[in-house]
Structures are given as C-alpha cells and as structure tokens.
C-alpha cells in the first residue's frame, strides 16, 4: 500500500518534470531568439553606417573644414566643436553632480526631503532632450545672456547629464562599505575627512564610469544644442566659449535632412555618423576599461 502511494508520487513528479522541461526549452529558445534579433538589428545599423561611411574617411575628412557649400571637404570643425562642448559639459556637470551626490549621500539627514530630491533628479532623466534644449535657450541664451554659444550649449548638455551623474555617483558612494566609514570615524576623522580619504577614493572609479556614460549620451545629442549654440556652418573654429560652434550630431542632422543637395552629400553624412559612432564607442570603452582597472585594484586590496 505504502509502496504504491510512493510509486504514484514518483510517477506524478516525473510527469511534471518532463512537462516543465519542455516548457523551459520553449522559453529558452524564445529568449535566444530575442537576443539574436537584438544583435541582428544592431549589426544592421553598424554595418550600414560602416559600409557607407568608411569610404569617405581619410585624413582630409578628419582635418579639413567643409568646402564648396558643404558638398566637399571634411568635418574638422564639427569634431572640434563636439570636443569643446563636451569639455564644458564635464566642467559643469561633474562638480555639480558629484557635489550634490556627496551631499545627498553623506551629509543630508535621510528623510522625506532627500527622497523628494532623489525622485526629482531621477525624473529629470526622463525629460525629453528637446525640452532641455528649449530650457537652455530660455535660461542660458536669453536670461543669462550667453547668446547662442559653446557655454550655453555645454551647460544645457550638462543639465541633461546631471541626473545620470548624480545617480551614478550616489550608487558609487553607497557601495563603499559602512565598515570603512566607521573605522575612519572611530579614529577621530571629521565627516569631510572620512569622505575625502576613505569614501571618495573608493567611489571615484564608479563615479567616473557613470559620468563617462552620461557624457557619451550627451555628446550624441542634437536637440539640446540645436537652439543653444550649434551652427549650420562656420568657416572658422570657435575662438571663445561665447562663440557658436559646429557639432557632429547637428552636422549629421543637417547633412541628412537640411542640405540643398542631399543625395550628393549622403556619403559625408554617413562618414559623420561613423565618426560620431566611433567617438561614443571610445567613450564607452574608456568607461569599461576604467571599471576593469578598478575591479583589479579592489581584488588587490589597494
């Protein structure tokens, strides 16, 4: 009697296992399929840009300004402009974002207010970039009187990256073990000494990776710089932070939708897209390498 019940039990269990097994197989294949699909789409985009853009890229393309109504020549001013505007974005967003994160995480008394601030910062990340662009135009270009310029565009992009910078910095600060903080406090360190000597050294790699990823996004944005300083065409490089500038994403936008001879400049547009892609990939690569070096350092205990 007992043995029979046991047998039945085993049989039922077996049946269920095989059923689950086939469910799982279907599930796995569905998941694999989605992965393949994602890679496929990415592959098509990259292949399209590289195959059509690689042809125009040469030394002249990288180092010469556009010529003959932008139908010939290179994209040098756009590369320089994107570089400059990114520098200003860093100078604006990093101190502000890291400072805010340090205050939020290390100094502020945690409560309703800090939760509200955090929520606002996170929601800022969801604001469409064109809204940032128009805000930048209203505030930096008009009210602050910067005019359309590198600084106005840099600040606008800085605002755009701020949520990423603050959130990433806070994450990084939060991963510093409490034991380090306590150890430091117990030796008579002030709060700022704890932050400076124990918390920040540990958090900086994480802060940097987060910030770089934010910058990589900002460098590719068009809408925020559209109304704050990016120029259709400039014969010379920007000579001060108050100058207008050419930028890669905006140049790409012009070359693919606004130019009078669109089909003629198509290869230049693809070349610009490729350079922008490479630039963003390089920034991401820098973040990955930084994280790798950080992990190795942690493993070594230094």
């Amino acid at each position: 009697m007992k043995a029979e019940v046991l047998k039945q039990g085993i049989a039922v269990k077996k049946h269920k296992t095989s059923e689950w097994h086939s469910y799982e197989l279907v599930g796995f294949w569905a998941l694999r399929l989605t992965l393949v699909l994602v890679l496929f789409i990415l592959g098509i985009i990259v292949f399209d840009i590289v195959s059509k853009g690689a042809g125009v890229i040469n030394w002249e393309f990288l180092t010469q300004p556009p010529r003959v109504g932008m139908t010939e020549g290179g994209i040098f001013p756009a590369i320089v402009g994107t570089f400059y505007v990114t520098l200003i974005t860093i100078a604006f967003a990093v101190p502000l974002g890291v400072g805010a994160a340090i205050y939020l995480n290390e100094y502020a008394v945690q409560g309703k207010f800090t939760r509200l601030v955090r929520m606002s910062v996170r929601n800022l990340a969801g604001v469409p970039s064109i809204v940032f662009g128009l805000f930048g135009m209203a505030v930096f270009v008009k009210i602050f009187g910067f005019g359309p310029s590198l600084i106005a565009a840099g600040f606008t992009l800085g605002l755009l990256t701020l949520p990423v910078t603050v959130t990433a910095s806070e994450e990084a600060l939060r991963t510093v073990p409490r034991a380090y903080r306590e150890g430091s406090f117990a030796l008579g360190a002030t709060r700022w000494q704890v932050v400076r000597t124990v918390v920040l050294p540990r958090a900086i790699p994480g802060i940097l990776t987060g910030t770089i990823l934010g910058l990589a996004r900002a460098a590719g944005e068009t809408a925020p710089i559209l109304a704050t300083g990016a120029a259709f065409f400039l014969p010379h490089l920007p000579d001060s932070i108050r100058s207008q500038f050419m930028a890669l994403p905006y140049h790409l936008f012009i070359m693919s939708t606004q130019h009078h001879a669109i089909s003629q400049v198509r290869p230049i547009a693809y070349g610009t897209a490729l350079i922008l892609l490479v630039l963003v990939c390089l920034l991401n690569l820098a973040a990955v390498l930084l994280r790798k070096r950080y992990r190795e350092r942690v493993a070594k205990g230094l």
Partner: peptide
C-alpha cells in the same frame, strides 16, 4: 577613545597607510 570592531576593517590601503591614517588626518 579608540575602537576595534567585530569584523576587521582595515582600509583598502597599504599596511603603512592604514596605521598612519590617524596621525595623518591629525
């Protein structure tokens, strides 16, 4: 009033820098 914790919590620094930590912040 110094303190030693339940779990050893040396800083992720060298042995020297760990000991010199207190005097240095002073």
């Amino acid at each position: 009033v110094g303190m030693v914790f339940q779990h050893p919590n040396p800083f992720p620094k060298s042995i020297f820098d760990n000991i010199a930590y207190g005097p240095r912040i002073d």
